[in-house]
């Protein structure tokens, strides 16, 4: 009787450790695959820190060459359409920020050689705040902002 119990216990603990190994192997994988994902920038809790982590520079100028299209009022903060375009020559990346979110950096797009500096997506906004578009060009980093009034926030629950 005692023997049988011991056996079950042993079996059980073996099973658990096998799962543990599988889980840690699974957790290691994304890091290895996504070496480029800028964790510190995405986890930064204010806009300036996020941008300086992402772009490695604080020298950002307001510019008419960055155009941002977003609604003035968003009834549902969970789905706010945002479109960013740029006329600046040599655009290399487009980043989108919701300044009022816990972690403001939403997305950053690296543009290939043939990409048109244009991106359109839908973002979550926690509260009324500026949506900021940042475009890195060969001549510097440019930005534009537009306030979006959010009726119902779209981050928590």
């Amino acid at each position: 009787m005692i023997d049988a119990k011991r056996r079950t216990l042993l079996k059980g603990s073996l099973g658990v450790s096998a799962i543990g190994v599988a889980v840690s192997a699974g957790l290691l994988m994304p890091g290895a695959v996504l070496a480029n994902w800028p964790k510190a920038a995405f986890e930064a809790t204010d806009t300036d820190a996020a941008l300086s982590e992402l772009l490695g520079s604080d020298a950002i100028k307001n510019s008419d060459l960055v155009k941002i299209k977003a609604p003035d009022i968003a009834e549902n903060g969970a789905v706010v359409p945002v479109t960013v375009e740029s006329d600046a020559p040599g655009a290399q990346s487009i980043s989108i920020i919701a300044a009022g979110n816990n972690t403001p950096l939403i997305a950053s797009f690296d543009l290939g050689a043939d990409a048109v500096p244009f991106v359109s997506t839908r973002i979550k906004m926690a509260e009324t705040a500026d949506v900021i578009a940042v475009v890195r060009t060969e001549d510097g980093i440019l930005r534009a902002a537009q306030e979006v009034k959010v009726t119902i926030g779209g981050c928590g629950g």
Partner: peptide
């Protein structure tokens, strides 16, 4: 990708809406 060429790489947080929509353009 357009054929074998990478035209855009997006790095995202969970701040992109559920069931993400993405539009982009490229020359060619």
């Amino acid at each position: 990708k357009w054929n074998d060429e990478v035209v855009m790489t997006g790095l995202w947080s969970s701040g992109v809406s559920k069931n993400p929509y993405l539009s982009f353009m490229f020359n060619g």
